[in-house]
Structure formats: C-alpha cells, structure tokens
Nucleic acid binder design. Structure first.
Lengths: 177, 177
DNA sequence: AATTTCATGTAACCAGTTACATGATTCA
DNA sequence: TGAATCATGTAACTGGTTACATGAAATT
C-alpha cells in the first residue's frame, strides 16, 4: 500500500479498485483489510489523509506518504534478499522489486537481482538433493509419485525465478548510461 | 496435516520435524500452529490420537485418520481447480496434487492436471493483456519499469506451471495400463 | 554436570476474510 | 424510481507467529 500511495495520492476506495482490477489483485486485499491498514499507517505517521472536497459531496480522503512513510518504504524495498524471503515470501520479493525503480538507484536494483539469483541457487541445491533421494527410494519403472512430481514443480519454479532474475538484470544493465 | 497423517500415524512432534527438515517446510507450520490444529481436527472428529506408551516415558500421542478424516481429505484433494485456486492458492493446488495418488484414481489426477492447464491459460491471457498495455503506455527505448518486469515474472511463472502440468500429465499417462 | 533433543503444549499479539452497515450519487 | 456504483467503514470469526513453559531422556 505504501508503494501504491507513493506513485500518487489515492483514496481507500481507489486502492480497493487497484487490487480488484489489476494484477496487483494477486496480492489480495479487501476493504476489510485496506481501511484498517490505512488507519494503522496513519497512526504510525507513515501516511496522511486529506479530504478532497468540502462541499455537499461525500468526503473522499486522499492519502499521501509522509517523509517517514517514504523512508519506511525505501527501507522495505532495500532489505537484503534472504533465502527465507525467497522460500516463504517470494511474492513480497517481487512486490518490492516492482516498486524499486521509483525509489532507489539502478545499481541497487541490479544487486537485488543478483542476490535473488544466489538464493535461488542455494534453495535449488537443497530441493534437488531431496528430489534425488525420492528417486532412489522408489527406483523402478513405475509411475513417479505425485509427491515427487510436485517437488519437481518446486524445482522448475525456482529455476524460472532464477532465469527471470538474470534476464531482468541484463535488461536493466543494457540501458545503463 | 491430514495428508501427512494419512501416510502413517504420526505425532505432533514428528509433524513439526517434517515441516522443519523437508521441502514440506515450504508450507510453514510451527509448534504453535500444529498442536492447536491437531486439537481442532480432533474436536471435529477427523483425527484420533492414541498414546503410544503407558510406562514411565513421557507420553507420545500418535494421530491417525478417522474415516471422516479420510473422507474430508479425499474431498479436499478432489475439489475442482478454479482460477481462484491457481491465482491465490497455487501452493495449495500443488499440495493437493502431491497427496493425490494415495487417495484417488489415476484419471482423476490426470483430469486435475488438465484443469490446471486450462486455468493457467485463462490467467495468462489476462496477464498478457495487462503486460501489453504497460508496453504501449511507455513506449520508447528506455529501460522497462521494474513494475513491468515484475509482471513479466508472473507470466513466466504461470507458463512454468502450465508446462509442468502438461509434462506431469504425459508422464502419468505413459505408465497407464 | 551440562547441554541438547524429545515431546507437548499455552498465551499475547496481530491481522486477514467475510459479511454487513450506511448513505450519497449517478445511470437506466 | 429502482439499481448500480461511489465511498467509507465496523464486527465476528479464524488462525498464524513468536515466544515462552515444562520436564523427561539422551548425549557429550
């Protein structure tokens, strides 16, 4: 939400709309979470709401970032990418990346992607070891268990993330001055 | 947890171990969630715990599925795969798949994968439309925004899932009698 | 003798989901 | 005039995380 508010002042209602109608919807968020979250952010001094019109219209509160909010947002996207992030919060990693270019310099973004590649490789090593163990455990010409196939998807998934990170990094480098 | 208990009677402690030491750890779960969850499942009559030893040893409760629990587990894995599942609960879809072969027939599994392919294609259409919109919005020879690149990952991700589902289906078909 | 592991659990805190409530405004 | 949309919010239910508590058994 801080990332969205940073792009332009926005109301709670329009935040809901973003989650409903764009791929941001991947990150869920319903009125029942957005309004309380805005209230929390306000209480922490990270956003400030101002009423757009004072006339007969139903008031519409536009929220914008405070300087504390901007600081917090930069801190959030700039966090080191840990293996834990890759495994348990891959979506957050991508979300942080998606807001980065408006907040930090190009080479911070590139280092971020390099770290994603590193952590993917680490996780892949561990998953592949498990995958091999499952092969030897059964061994034969029966069909693979769905459990083993599911693990195969996990591996394919981290490979895709790693490949994407490498390509994205190269693409960003290509446009460096 | 029902899926794990179905494989063999297991204690709360050993369930914790599974999540700590295998790729199942991807699905989180800590003692603070496992023990209360076991209690809930017990209360709902889906699992039954029996004490392993009555001697001086600290009692160790082994849980096994009741017939209601088995029914519920089969119901869970057999649910239709919706687009909502693919988008918001991809992990659950893979988890259901991973437990399937012990619970339902081969062709139910194959139909499950076919449905995954369908729903991926639907989601891909929608994401690609958004992706194209972001291209035309900026248009030029500047570097792509990290937001657009992040969406690119989403697309790569669903492509991987679709490709995996097709391959897994073919592999399962190859071993059909 | 001290530490680690086995083994089970509880409590405070936090936050998301669903569903509901309210009332103004715009559109058919 | 009735329905949909704009716009903001609340409440009950649910359940996860972290951290803590307890004590026996095995290991060093």
């Amino acid at each position: 939400m801080l990332g969205l508010i940073a792009q332009a002042p926005i109301s709670g209602y329009d935040l809901c709309k973003v989650f409903e109608t764009t791929p941001m919807g991947h990150y869920s968020a319903s009125p029942g979470s957005i309004y309380p979250a805005l209230k929390r952010l306000d209480k922490r001094g990270l956003v400030a709401g101002r009423v757009e019109k004072g006339s007969t219209l139903r008031p519409r509160r536009l929220f914008e970032l405070t300087s504390d909010g901007h600081e917090e947002l930069v801190r959030w996207v700039s966090q080191p990418v840990t293996r834990r992030d890759i495994v348990w919060a891959e979506d957050d990693v991508l979300l942080r990346f998606g807001f980065m270019d408006a907040l930090v310099s190009r080479d911070v973004v590139v280092r971020f992607l390099d770290e994603v590649v590193r952590q993917c490789s680490a996780e892949l090593d561990s998953l592949q070891a498990h995958h091999r163990k499952m092969r030897t455990a059964v061994s034969g010409d029966e069909a693979p268990s769905t459990g083993r196939l599911a693990l195969g998807y996990g591996i394919a998934s981290y490979r895709t993330l790693r490949r994407w990170a490498k390509q994205a990094r190269d693409e960003l480098r290509r446009f460096e001055d």
